Deep mutational scan, measured.
Amino acid sequence: AITFRFEGQEKAKKFYEKLMRQNLEATIHIHGDEVHVTVH
């Protein structure tokens, strides 16, 4: 698994949606202002 870190939720959401379109499995974790997107 690879984890990407984002400042702010907007960028993270766009990235997450892009992964979903590519049929990749990903989970999102929100830590205050920092958002972690883990790709499995």
Rank of each mutant, 00 (worst) to 15 (best):
L24G: 02
G8K: 06
E7C: 15
V37D: 00
A12N: 01
E10H: 06
H29M: 09
K13C: 15
I30F: 10
K18G: 07
H31E: 13
H36C: 12
R21S: 12
F15P: 00
G8Q: 11
M20E: 03
K18V: 08
N23D: 06
G32R: 06
L19C: 14
T3S: 05
I2N: 03
H31F: 13
R21W: 05
V39H: 03
I30E: 05
K14N: 08
K13S: 07
E17N: 07
L24R: 06
K13N: 10
D33Q: 09
G8N: 15
Q22N: 10
V35P: 00
F4C: 15
A1W: 15
F4D: 09
E34P: 01
K11I: 11
F4W: 07
F4A: 09
F15T: 01
T3G: 02
L19Y: 02
A26L: 08
H29Y: 13
G32M: 06
E25F: 13
G8A: 11
H36N: 03
Q22C: 15
T38A: 04
K13W: 14
A12L: 03
R21F: 09
K18L: 13
R21A: 14
V35E: 00
T27P: 00
K13P: 01
V37N: 00
G8S: 15
H36Y: 15
M20D: 02
E7W: 12
T3H: 08
Q22D: 06
R21V: 07
T3K: 05
M20H: 03
G8E: 15
G8V: 11
T3E: 09
I28L: 07
K14W: 09
T3P: 02
F6G: 02
A26P: 04
I2E: 05
I30C: 09
R21Q: 12
R5F: 15
E34T: 09
M20S: 04
V35Y: 12
F4L: 07
Q9T: 11
H36Q: 04
H29Q: 10
H29T: 14
A26E: 00
H29S: 13
F4Y: 14
G32F: 07
T3F: 06
T27M: 06
Q22H: 11
K13Q: 14
I30N: 05
I30K: 05
F6W: 02
M20G: 03
F15L: 03
E7F: 13
K18R: 10
I28A: 02
I2V: 11
E34Q: 08
I30Y: 11
A26Y: 08
D33W: 08
E17A: 06
V39N: 02
A12I: 03
H31K: 09
Q9H: 13
E34K: 06
L19M: 09
I28Q: 01
E10P: 03
V37L: 03
G8D: 15
A1T: 14
Y16S: 02
K14S: 09
F6H: 01
R5Y: 15
F4G: 09
Q9S: 12
M20T: 07
D33Y: 08
R21D: 07
T27L: 04
Y16Q: 03
E34R: 05
N23G: 15
E17M: 07
H36D: 02
E7P: 07
R21K: 13
R5E: 11
V39M: 07
L24P: 05
K14I: 12
D33T: 13
I30D: 05
T27H: 08
Y16E: 01
K13M: 15
A12H: 01
I28P: 00
Y16A: 05
E34L: 10
E25V: 13
A1K: 13
R21P: 01
L19H: 01
Q9W: 15
E10W: 05
V39Q: 03
V37I: 09
Q22T: 06
G8M: 09
A1V: 13
T38D: 04
I2M: 08
E7H: 12
E25G: 07
D33K: 10
G8L: 11
R5D: 08
I30M: 08
V37R: 00
D33I: 09
F6K: 02
I2L: 08
M20A: 04
K18Y: 15
F15A: 02
Y16I: 11
K13Y: 14
K14Q: 12
Q22V: 06
I2D: 03
T3W: 11
K18P: 01
H40I: 13
A12Q: 01
G32V: 05
E17T: 03
E34M: 11
T3M: 08
V39R: 02
E7D: 13
E10K: 05
F4V: 15
K11C: 15
V39Y: 07
H29E: 13
F6A: 02
I30P: 03
V35I: 11
K18S: 12
E10T: 05
Y16W: 10
A26N: 01
I2F: 07
K11F: 07
E25W: 09
F15G: 00
H29F: 10
Q22L: 15
E10I: 06
I2R: 06
E25H: 15
V35D: 00
F4T: 11
Y16D: 00
Q22M: 15
E7L: 13
I28H: 00
F15I: 02
L19P: 00
K13L: 15
V39D: 01
Q9F: 15
V37T: 00
A12P: 01
H36I: 13
E17H: 04
K11M: 13
E10N: 04
L24Y: 10
A26T: 03
A26I: 12
T27C: 05
F6S: 01
E7A: 13
K13E: 10
K11Y: 08
E34V: 13
H40Q: 09
H31A: 08
K14P: 02
R21I: 08
H31M: 12
V37Q: 00
